[in-house]
Every structure is written in structure tokens, then in C-alpha cells.
């Protein structure tokens, strides 16, 4: 039989071009972050790590990191406490609710961020609840699609209703059954969902900036402000951001591939 030769270089060329297209700005940003001066020349005048020192010495830097972290952790907690039980209930007991959740989870994609914020300001702007709480709830809702999808996949395949009920028939309480039987079996999907939520909340910009009119300076807001005053330091921050998200992406890839292997076994 004649084996058809596949042109290997063509797909590889396309992938290489895309990779160059995506990596070029990051590489350029990196070099900008370690350049002394890089204006009106093809190559930077000199190299230095000075800007890394400048950035970390800025009194606004660490508080911004902490604010972003706190915001992201709060969003993750809300997601765990409020959405996880609902998604479990919809998947296990009430498939009709799942249809509605699916619809709800598309909404954040279909409504532009700026429209959402305008609505939020008008609706909740004068409510006697700290705005930060409304912000946390809003970001949690906006992060729902990623969390919902990761968990939905985790609930597929096994008979979770049967397992949950079986654990109770074996004498366990509802909470005990959920912790001992449901959670361990959705662990990978749950981790993926929580990491995606964390990353999205950590890097959120539009809503935080407009809704709190910039008073709550997160890392992303700090970064945009820095761009106007010190381009080099801003590129240092961009690189740090990139590394941080890169680590999260690597963990996600690892989790998903472990999950696939486990399913095959």
C-alpha cells in the first residue's frame, strides 16, 4: 500500500508564525524592562535590572499585590460556597436548572463589560452595602462561566447522585457524604475551575476600575497607571504578570492531563 506523504512543514510553519506573533511583544517587553534607554534606536542603549528594583521599592507595589490577592481569594471563596453547591444540585438533582444555569453562564460573555458596570453603578451605587462586597459578588458572577464549565465536565461520567445517596445509606450525613465522596471525585475539575476563577479575578480591570472609581488600586490598575509614568517599570510588572499567569496555566495543563490519564485507567 502506498503511504501518502504528509507535508509536515506546512502546519509547523503556521504554528511557528503564530508563536512568533504571540511571543514577540512579550520578548520585546522583557527587553524593554531590562533596558536603560530604548528610544529612537533599533537596539537598547544598555541593559540593567534597575527597573526591577525601582518597581519593588515603590510603596504602592506591595499593597496593590495584596489587594489583588485579597480580591481573588474572596472571589474564590464566594464561588466555592455559593456556586459549588448549586452546580452540584443542578447536575445531580435538577437537570432543568442546568439549562437555566447554562444560559446564565453565557450572559457575562454577551454583555460588554462597560455596559455591565454602568448598570451596576446605577443599580447598586447608592445601596448601603460596602461597594467592595458588591464588587466581589459581581466578579464572582462574571467568573461563573469558567467555573461552571469545569465542574460540569467533572460531574459527567460517574453516578454522583447514586454515590451521594449511597454514602448516606451507609450512615453518613449529607455534609459528610459531600466532603468524603463528592469532593474527592471532582477534585481535578474543581481545581481547574478555582484556578481559572482565581486568575480571572486577579487580573480583573474594567469593573474594578470603573465601579470603585479607581479607589481600590489592584495590581492591574497600578500597572495601567504606571504605564503613564514609567514605561520600563510597567514592563517589569507585565513580565511578572505573565510569569504568574504562566505558572497557573502550567498547573492547569498538568491537572487536565492527569485527569485524562486517570479516566483512561
Amino acid at each position: 500500500m502506498k503511504v501518502q506523504r504528509v507535508n509536515k512543514w506546512r502546519p509547523q510553519l503556521v504554528i511557528t508564525l503564530i508563536a512568533i506573533f504571540l511571543l514577540a511583544p512579550i520578548v520585546a517587553t522583557f527587553f524593554y524592562s531590562i533596558s536603560t534607554v530604548w528610544v529612537k534606536t533599533i537596539l537598547p542603549n544598555g541593559l540593567t535590572f534597575k527597573w526591577y528594583g525601582v518597581l519593588t521599592a515603590d510603596p504602592n507595589f506591595i499593597p496593590s499585590v495584596i489587594r489583588s490577592l485579597l480580591l481573588a481569594i474572596a472571589v474564590v471563596i464566594v464561588t466555592m460556597v455559593a456556586f459549588l453547591p448549586v452546580i452540584f444540585y443542578a447536575n445531580v438533582y435538577n437537570p432543568k436548572l442546568k439549562e437555566k444555569l447554562r444560559y446564565l453562564s453565557i450572559l457575562p460573555y454577551s454583555i460588554p463589560g462597560i455596559v455591565l458596570v454602568t448598570g451596576l453603578v446605577q443599580l447598586y451605587g447608592n445601596v448601603a452595602v460596602p461597594k467592595i462586597i458588591i464588587l466581589i459578588l459581581t466578579i464572582s458572577a462574571i467568573c461563573l462561566p469558567a467555573f461552571y464549565q469545569s465542574l460540569n465536565n467533572a460531574f459527567m461520567g460517574d453516578d454522583f447522585r447514586g454515590m451521594f445517596e449511597q454514602a448516606q445509606l451507609l450512615g453518613d450525613s449529607k455534609v459528610g457524604a459531600f466532603i468524603r465522596v463528592v469532593l474527592p471525585n471532582i477534585r481535578a475539575g474543581l481545581m481547574v475551575g478555582l484556578l481559572l476563577t482565581f486568575a480571572a479575578a486577579f487580573t480583573e480591570y474594567v469593573i474594578t476600575n470603573i465601579f470603585l472609581t479607581g479607589q481600590y488600586q489592584t495590581l492591574k490598575i497600578y500597572m495601567y497607571r504606571l504605564m503613564n509614568t514609567n514605561g520600563n517599570a510597567a514592563s517589569v510588572l507585565t513580565i511578572i504578570f505573565f510569569l504568574f499567569l504562566g505558572v497557573i496555566a502550567l498547573i492547569l495543563i498538568k491537572l487536565v492531563s492527569n485527569q485524562k490519564r486517570a479516566k483512561k485507567e
Partner: peptide, 13 residues
């Protein structure tokens, strides 16, 4: 009361 489900509902973990 014990119950055996059609799916067995064994705990995979």
C-alpha cells in the same frame, strides 16, 4: 437499610 443501586455507585476514589 442498605441499598444496591443499578449503577452500583461504588466510590471511584
Amino acid at each position: 437499610i442498605g441499598m444496591i443501586f443499578q449503577s452500583y455507585a461504588l466510590f471511584p476514589n
